[in-house]
């Protein structure tokens, strides 16, 4: 039984980032005939799920404001991510409004968004972006735009900014 639940919950968690807008999901429930596309893949590739943040093992939420990684992450986040995800991480950035389907830019502060994911999953989303199954969202693929260190710094700041802790490995 336990195994079965795990089997269900693991893919579920991974799909949450894509469809974390719970109200949209609720709405989807009401309009049963509307199937945009099937969710097929929602597990990050192994090379991601194995990764841990090499910068620190600490919970990013507890890091001080002047932590160098947080400061670096803040700078990068505000330059790029904040355009859609908002300065406060609430998914209400100045560029968010055009990107309404299939999901709005995720609200990082949502207790069911990055709070239920570990950092490696967020890295996967930053790297690959939304073009690809099962997402097809407007999230850009940042793989080649940031160094690995910069990406982990952005992840630390994203959690700290949203005031949530990542799921432990």
């Amino acid at each position: 039984m336990k195994k079965k639940i795990l089997f269900l919950i693991v893919p579920l968690i991974f799909s949450l980032l894509a469809f974390s807008d719970a109200s949209a999901a609720e709405k989807g429930k009401q309009v049963k005939e509307k199937q945009v596309r099937k969710v097929i893949h929602y597990t990050p590739p192994l090379e991601y799920s194995r990764l841990e943040n090499p910068l620190t093992k600490a919970d990013p939420k507890t890091l001080p404001d002047n932590d160098p990684n947080i400061l670096a992450g803040k700078r990068l986040y505000e330059k790029t991510c904040a355009n859609c995800h908002g300065i406060r991480g609430d998914g209400k950035g100045p560029e968010a409004d055009g990107f309404v389907t299939p999901i709005r830019p995720v609200d990082m502060t949502d207790s069911e968004a990055i709070a239920v994911l570990d950092q490696s999953y967020v890295l996967w989303r930053i790297d690959e972006g939304g073009l690809g199954e099962p997402f097809y969202s407007a999230m850009p693929a940042w793989k080649d735009d940031f160094t690995e260190t910069e990406k982990w710094q952005i992840i630390l700041y994203t959690y700290k900014n949203a005031g949530v802790s990542p799921k432990a490995k």
Partner: peptide
């Protein structure tokens, strides 16, 4: 909801 009834396009 996600798997069987995807979010309405025009949220």
């Amino acid at each position: 909801g996600i798997l069987y009834n995807l979010p309405e396009v025009n949220s």
